[in-house]
Amino acid sequence: MAKIFCVANQKGGVGKTTTTVNLAAGLAKVGQRVLMIDLDPQGNATMGSGVDKRKLELTVYDVLLESASVLEARVRSEKCGYDVLGANRELAGAEVELVDVERREKRLKLALADVGEHYDFVLIDCPPSLSMLTLNGLCCAHGVIVPMQCEYFALEGLTDLVNTIKQVHANLNKDLAIIGLLRVM
C-alpha cells in the first residue's frame, strides 16, 4: 500500500513544486515506485518531470471528473524514473465543475484506491491556495509536508494552513498528519 504525501502551503513561491519533483526523483533513484500528482493548474510539476503538459491526452482533471482512471491518465517520465499524473490549465475548471458534485473533496482519494499496490509513494504537488484541489489532496494523504520560507509573513499564513489541516483531520481524513515543516530559501 502506497504512502501518500501532500506538499502544501497556500503561499506561492515557497518551493512546493521543487520539493515534490525532487523528492519523487530521489525516491525513484533509490528504487521506490513513485506516482507524482500535479494538482496545480499551472502544471509546473508536470513540466519539471519532463512531461509536456500541452501534449497530455488525459490529466488529473479527467480523473477528478471521473472520465478516466489514474492508470489510464498516468504517463511515465523516463527521464525522472517515476509516473506522472499531470496537469494543465484545464484543471482550473475543475474547481467550478466540482461545486455541485457529491463527494467532491474525496474524488482523488477514491481514484487512488485502485492504484495503491502499484506504488510505494504517491506525492501530490498542491496549488498555492486552500482550494477544492488542495482539499482533495489533503483528504487522501497520510501526511503533509509544508515548505516554508523563514520569514515573519510566512508564519502568519501557516496558522491558516494548520487550522485547515486540523479540520480535515477531524472531519474528513483521520489518517492525516503534518510530517514536518521544510524550511526553504
Rank of each mutant, 00 (worst) to 15 (best):
Q32A: 09
L161W: 11
C80I: 00
A73D: 01
L27V: 02
S67H: 08
L98W: 04
E97A: 08
K106G: 05
V63E: 05
E95C: 09
T134I: 09
L98G: 00
S49E: 03
L112Y: 13
L161C: 07
L85P: 12
C126A: 09
E156I: 04
L23D: 01
K29L: 15
V115F: 02
T59R: 05
C140V: 13
T18D: 01
I145L: 11
V162F: 15
E95M: 10
A94T: 14
F5M: 10
L58I: 10
K11L: 02
T19V: 07
R104E: 01
G15C: 06
A141M: 12
S69G: 09
R103G: 01
E66Q: 15
L161I: 08
L56Y: 10
L123W: 12
N163R: 12
H142G: 10
T59M: 04
K166P: 03
L176D: 06
A111C: 11
L23V: 02
V63N: 07
G48E: 02
E105H: 08
Q149A: 09
F121Y: 15
I37T: 09
G86Y: 12
E72N: 14
H118L: 05
V96S: 13
L182H: 04
V34A: 03
N9D: 00
Q149I: 12
F5D: 00
A141E: 10
N163Y: 11
M1L: 00
V84N: 02
R107M: 07
A92C: 08
D160E: 11
L85M: 04
G31Y: 12
A154Y: 05
L71Q: 13
V34Q: 04
K29P: 07
K29V: 11
L64S: 01
